[in-house]
Design a protein around this nucleic acid. Structure first.
Length: 270
DNA sequence: ATGTCGTGAAGGTCACGA
């Protein structure tokens, strides 16, 4: 079967529930992973997504900030949420797919990595210190639990654009949080610790420039095109051979009242 | 080049996070 998985930082799922249902109708992913839902679990717009045919929903949210969720038309058989950095700030949820066909048994890990503030120095910026510690914990999780040993997928807003062509200007971004050499190195360690394969770059290697986020502050985001590839889909080695396609839904940045991130989709033959 | 968004608590706007 063909299995399509999408990830999207929605920047408030209640405000943009209509954009989500539009995306589900137009692109029809089997599973959508959301970040920055910014709402408590009992306020999640479950009914709207069920009505759209996505009956299996797992949420891990909190009031106002962060929050992740999985919206699926394939049944989910298990759900767990990890705590990171001794905080209850709703930055991870994992589900295992249970539907018939080849999707059964695939585990999805959905992450929202801390943004890290403005100053790329952990000695003076506790948010950057938090981001680095979060990445270290992800690496230790990868070495300890071997999350990529079977058939698994890691998605999310990782808040790092690791490659030179993941940003509009490598040189001008070297001191900007999301592309500093230290963050890129630590994200590489997370990836290597478990053997994750970057799905989108497998099919669209450098030097093609790829972005998934454009700032709200740009006067004309399309004209300036100063984007960053902050949103990622990683595959376990056991799944990487199943990769059949990828898509960055760039036009979603032009929708009315958009998120500053756009959906990233992959298709697997499983 | 400190630009624009979303939330929540207050209170008719601001602080905070991104």
């Amino acid at each position: 079967m063909r299995l399509t998985i999408a990830t999207w930082n929605i920047n408030s799922v209640r405000l943009r529930a209509g954009l989500v249902t539009q995306f589900l109708a137009d692109h029809g992913p089997d599973v959508l992973c959301l970040q920055e839902t910014k709402c408590q679990d009992d306020h999640f717009p479950t009914a709207a997504f069920r009505k759209a045919g996505y009956e299996h929903i797992a949420v891990h949210g909190q009031k106002g900030y962060h929050g992740v969720a999985v919206v699926s038309r394939i049944p989910i058989e298990a759900r767990e949420a990890h705590r990171y950095c001794d905080k209850d700030d709703a930055r991870h949820i994992a589900v295992t797919l249970a539907g018939g066909g080849g999707a059964k048994g695939i585990t999805l890990h959905n992450f929202y990595v801390p943004a890290g503030g403005d100053v790329p120095d952990p000695a003076v910026n506790v948010k950057f210190e938090h981001k680095l510690a979060f990445l270290d914990e992800m690496t230790r999780w990868g070495m300890r639990d071997k999350p990529a040993a079977g058939r698994s997928v890691l998605v999310g807003d990782l808040n790092i654009a690791p490659l030179e062509n993941d940003v509009w200007s490598h040189k001008q971004m070297l001191d900007v949080v999301s592309h500093t050499p230290l963050e890129c190195k630590l994200l590489g360690q997370v990836q290597e610790a478990a053997g994750w394969v970057d799905a989108v770059r497998t099919l669209r290697p450098e030097p093609e420039r790829l972005y998934t986020w454009w700032s709200y502050r740009a006067q004309d985001w399309q004209k300036a095109d100063r984007g960053r590839r902050l949103d990622h889909v990683w595959l376990s080695p056991g799944l990487s051979g199943s990769l059949a396609g990828t898509e960055i839904v760039r036009h979603a940045r032009s929708w009315e009242r958009p998120s500053d991130h756009v959906p990233v989709m992959i298709t697997l033959d499983v």
